[in-house]
Structures are given as C-alpha cells and as structure tokens.
Amino acid sequence: MVSLYARLAWTWTRAAAAYPASFALMTVLGIITTTLDVAVILIVFANTTTLAGFSRDEVLFLYGAAGVSFALCDLLVSNIDRVSQHIKAGTFDTFLIRPVSSWLQLTTDRFNPNRLGRVLQAVLVLGYAVAVLDLEGRRLWMIPVMVVTGFVIFAALWTLVGAAQFLLTDAPELGNAFTYGGQQLTQYPLAVYARDLVKGVTYVLPMAFVNWQPGLYVLGRDDPFGTPEFMRFLGPAAALALVLAAGLAWRQGIRHYRSTGS
C-alpha cells in the first residue's frame, strides 16, 4: 500500500515538476501563509511573557508539534476532502472501477508536493523550540510518538469529513470547521480555552491527544485542568479509535454513494 501510494504520488509530482516556476512560487507562498501563524504567536508574546501560564517557547513547541502533524496530513491525506467536488463533477465513478481502495486513490489524486514546504516550516519551529527549551532527556521519546499520533488523528478526522460529504454533497465547507478548526485549536495550549470545550476535544473528538496531552508530558508540566498523569500516554489509543470510526464512516459513505446521471 505504501509503495503504491508513493507510485501514485510520484506521478503527480512529475506532472507538477513540468511547471517549475509555478511549483517554486506555490511552495514559498505556502511557507509564508503558515508563517503568519507564527508571527501572530510572536506578536502576542511581544505583549506578554506568559499566555495562560505558558511561555513563548512552550507555545512554539506545541505549535510546532501540531504543525508537523497537520502539515503531513495536509500533504498526504487532505485531498480526501474533494469527495463532493468529484461527486458533483461525476468523476467519482472512476475511483470505484479500479482494483485499489478508493481512499488511497483519492488521497493521492492531484498529490501536491509543494505542501512539503509547510512540513519544513513546522519542523523548523519544532526544532527551534526543542533546542531552546530545557527539556528532560528521558521525556524526548514522546516527541516522535506525538507527531505520528497527531498525524493519524488529523488523517482520520479528514477521512471522517470526506465521508460526511457523501451525505452533505452541497455543503462541503461544513467540514472545515472540524479540519481547519482542529488545526487552529491545536496551535495554542488548550489551557486558554474553556473547560467544557477542552472536555469535548478530549473525550469526544480526541484533538487533545494531537499535542496537548503528550506535550504536557514532554514539557514536564501538570494539566491545568487536572487530568491524571496516565492521560498523557493515551494518544495512540485515541488515534486508533478515531481511525476505526473513520474507516467505518468511509465504507458507509461508499455504500450510500448514488452516482449521477441517468
């Protein structure tokens, strides 16, 4: 499956490489757009030393970790949110006549390598934060785990939103509240949000496990909302549960697909 993914992605990359100037421009602009969010964090901390009890470098750490997860998902999976576009254009049928899972075909469809720039930007921010924060060595193993967990959670979330488009063909932008909303939510320590909202994104939609819970472990801090220590390690389980839900939703979506035309 991975090799097939790479093969499909490579074909689109080659197609994109036919227009090198446009490719370079879009890569740079992608980096600039995401850097705006960093600029906002820096401006906020030009006015204060702590935000909800977190320092600038701690916030950059949380931002960077979620940023890498999100940018990887944006690069590798986010094309799944074009379901309704394909249904409306009548091109969705094509994915269903191939001997490969429709999910794999959709995520690679028009694979866009210039989003790699955003991954790079987030890696730099994360790298900076890890370098300047005085982190305990025995906690560092969690960083790769949280980045992968975060990626899987975002990917599952994206798939759920894609699956929902089989029903909500005319309102695909409703899903943005969850996908891009999830991105925005995870850019800051959850300590800034209200308790009920944080409960929701911990126990219902497990966005808290993208960077918040495991991040608290890496930073060696207690949860201001007082959740117990073992919650820091539940990320992979939460991701797995969300993946199962997304897989089921996707299958149901395909079964309820009603094609178009006569």
Partner: peptide
C-alpha cells in the same frame, strides 16, 4: 467556530495584560 477559538486567545492575552491597547 473560528471566531470562538480566536476569542479565547484574545481573552487569555487580555487576562495577562488587562487594559492592553
């Protein structure tokens, strides 16, 4: 949705710096 998230960040900032701007 996006507005609500943004509002919390501004609230946190103004809690740290009352009367800012």
């Amino acid at each position: 949705m996006f507005g609500v998230l943004r509002a919390y960040i501004l609230i946190a900032l103004w809690q740290a710096r009352p009367g800012l701007a």
